[in-house]
Simulated scan of single mutants.
Amino acid sequence: MTVSTAPSPAVVAEPAFGLLLDVDGPIASPVSRTVAITSIGRDLAAMANRGIPVIFNTGRSDDFIARQVVPPLREAGLHAGAPVFTISEKGAVWAEVTPEGLGEIHLDEELRLPAALADDVRALVAERFSGHMFFDETKRAMISLEQRTDVANEDYLAVQPEFDAAAPALLEKHQVRDVRIDPTIISTDIEHDRLGKDLGAARALELLQARGISPQAWYTMGDSRTDYAMASWLHERGHQVSHVDVRPADGIPETAHPVLTSDTGAIHDDAGAEFLSRWARSLC
């Protein structure tokens, strides 16, 4: 499809709200690992084109964003200059999102894990776990193992604890400190302990401040308890924020800010699509 040649949107210094969005779950299907619902790309592009900041705050790599998230935005007519960014690998990597793809990739080298450790984890997966998971070669700072798409989630989850139990020996071998092992429903991340959705929120504000953008309020969205950290970080710094939980079955923690869930009982990207459409309509 031809890249949109529409004029750049005017910068809105104080947009009505900003969006800080986890990707797996709310935006990309945890089953297909794609943006499977057409309205998601349409509504995100429509809001961004009207000056609403759209920031993906994700553990995914910049490569995943470029391959899976940018094309639906391009197809929906995202304008050049719209305030869209990705903060990938839980704050270690960031870039502007444009109709052509990603802009310059920035990496915090202090948060990158040693290549030798990654090599040993890759070898461990190949030797013992390749029937259920794969080594994510696109990560720049983290080390991630992900469920194969041809494996049932319950089968993957049955094996995941065995990998998680084997990983600490490799951290000890390489004398790596200040690192945590973070399992999710479809992956395990080995990451510097400074990484997290709160670091992503801090990067988001820095990116917007550089453009002179200060949203009047925020909506954050995620599918796990760790995603609450971005809303908590914003609230603690005086921002008005509501968090959308698209997988509330894990239990909604007590928070000092509002927590929203689907009125229809939808979860994952179905719930994400509901909220995005609602927010896009509010601008009309």
Rank of each mutant, 00 (worst) to 15 (best):
R194Q: 15
K197T: 05
R203N: 14
H192W: 03
A202W: 09
R177I: 04
D189Y: 01
T188H: 07
T188V: 12
D198Q: 04
M221S: 10
D198L: 02
A210V: 01
T188F: 09
A202V: 11
D178I: 04
H174P: 01
L195N: 03
R211P: 02
A217K: 14
W218E: 12
H174E: 02
R211A: 03
R194D: 15
R180K: 13
S224T: 15
Y228A: 01
H192G: 14
M221A: 11
Q209I: 00
D178L: 11
I213P: 05
Y228E: 04
I190E: 03
R180I: 14
M221C: 15
L205S: 00
D178K: 13
A231Y: 03
G238Q: 05
D189K: 01
L208A: 10
L199S: 07
S232R: 05
G222F: 10
R211C: 04
T188K: 10
E236Q: 11
T188D: 04
E236S: 04
R211V: 03
D223F: 11
I190K: 03
R180W: 07
W218G: 09
Q216D: 13
P183F: 03
V176W: 11
T226A: 12
P215V: 08
H174G: 02
G222V: 14
T220I: 06
D193I: 05
G238W: 02
T226Q: 09
A231E: 07
L208S: 10
P215L: 04
S187N: 12
D198P: 01
A229Q: 14
M230H: 01
E236D: 14
L195M: 08
Y228K: 02
G222R: 10
Q216K: 15
A204C: 08
Y219S: 14
T188G: 03
I213W: 04
D193M: 07
E191A: 13
E206F: 00
G238H: 07
A229W: 06
W233Q: 03
R211L: 11
R225H: 06
K173S: 01
H239G: 09
L205A: 01
Q175V: 04
G222C: 13
A210L: 00
L208C: 10
R237L: 07
G196K: 06
Q216W: 07
L207V: 03
A229P: 09
R211F: 07
P183H: 04
V176E: 11
R180V: 13
G196D: 05
P183S: 08
L195W: 06
H239C: 13
S214L: 12
R177W: 02
R177Y: 04
E206W: 00
M221G: 09
A201T: 00
E206I: 01
K173G: 00
R177H: 08
I181W: 08
A229E: 14
H235P: 08
A204N: 08
T184R: 10
D223Q: 11
S232Q: 06
D227I: 10
A202T: 12
A204I: 04
P215M: 04
A231G: 15
W218F: 15
L205I: 02
K173F: 00
D182E: 13
D223G: 10
R177G: 06
D223I: 12
K197S: 00
D182C: 05
S214V: 07
G238Y: 04
S224H: 10
T188N: 05
L234I: 11
I181D: 09
D223T: 12
E206T: 06
Y219P: 15
S224A: 15
H192V: 06
S187Y: 09
T220S: 03
I181Q: 08
